[in-house]
């Protein structure tokens, strides 16, 4: 199995890597120090299982889960130092959870569970939390954009961009995830709009355009117009 290790502490990653390799059941697909790196790695590496720390800077393990599409979601094993998180981990229907420091015997049980796991298609979907902050890449830093500040989101061949009154930032999240979990409205195949940021909507010969509060135009496709109208109470 190809495993991805996500933990913000260097030594914790090293220790887990050693333990995983000792079992002989895993190869290491990658190591990530934070959630944003993890999203990229999950997309790129398509690991079978992610060993996920819960307390991490800026975006927690739980938040990370909600930022992933169901079909790109691998099996999740939470790894945490604190009992209190364990209960919540089960609510999130993680496959398993491990307490740090991890013992070999306990890890062996996890391996068994992973082996018994049905294929990815048969795995039940996780009910996931609402996204309140969208992790974006700005220059070289990671910026968390609060959802209410978002005017719209557009996708192009270059990727998905979050547009606020002041900036346009690249994000790893997909339009589908943002539509489902951030409460943004689909108005076009390639656009989502924040209903609270709509200033006006003009309809001309069946072609509609939304103007946002800061004066940017967002196209509305014929197909999505009824849904947009319903959402804006028109």
């Amino acid at each position: 199995m190809r495993a991805l290790i996500v933990d913000d502490e260097l030594h914790a990653r090293e220790e887990l890597e050693s333990l995983l390799l000792e079992t002989g059941a895993f190869s290491i697909a990658g190591r990530c120090g934070n959630a944003v790196e993890a999203i990229q790695a999950i997309r790129k590496q398509r690991p079978d299982v992610v060993f996920l720390d819960i307390q991490m800077p800026a975006i927690s393990g739980f938040e990370l889960l909600s930022m992933l599409d169901d079909d790109e979601l691998p099996a999740i094993v939470f790894v945490t130092a604190h009992d209190a998180f364990a209960l919540r981990a089960f609510e999130e229907r993680a496959l398993d959870y491990l307490l740090k420091p991890v013992s070999r015997e306990r890890l062996a049980k996890t391996v068994e569970r992973l082996r018994k796991l049905p294929g990815a298609e048969a795995r039940p979907g996780y009910p996931r939390a609402e996204i309140r902050r969208i992790p974006c890449l700005a220059a070289r830093a990671i910026k968390l954009v609060d959802v209410p500040e978002v005017e719209f989101v557009r996708s192009s061949e270059a990727g998905v961009y979050v547009v606020t009154a002041k900036a346009e930032l690249f994000t790893e999240l997909t339009l589908k995830v943002l539509e489902e979990r951030a409460g943004l409205v689909r108005c076009h195949k390639q656009f989502l709009v924040n209903a609270d940021q709509v200033d006006e909507i003009s309809i001309d010969e069946g072609l509609a355009v939304i103007r946002t509060r800061s004066g940017k135009d967002v196209p509305v496709s014929r197909r999505h117009l009824p849904a947009v109208k319903a959402r804006l109470d028109l």
């Binding site: 502490e9 030594h11 914790a12 090293e14 220790e15 050693s18 307390q55 130092a81 604190h82 009992d83 307490l99 740090k100 420091p101 991890v102």
Partner: peptide, 14 residues
Amino acid sequence: PHFLFNALNTIIAI
């Protein structure tokens, strides 16, 4: 407890 467990985990790794 969080501090203690993380400390022990770090030491075990080292």
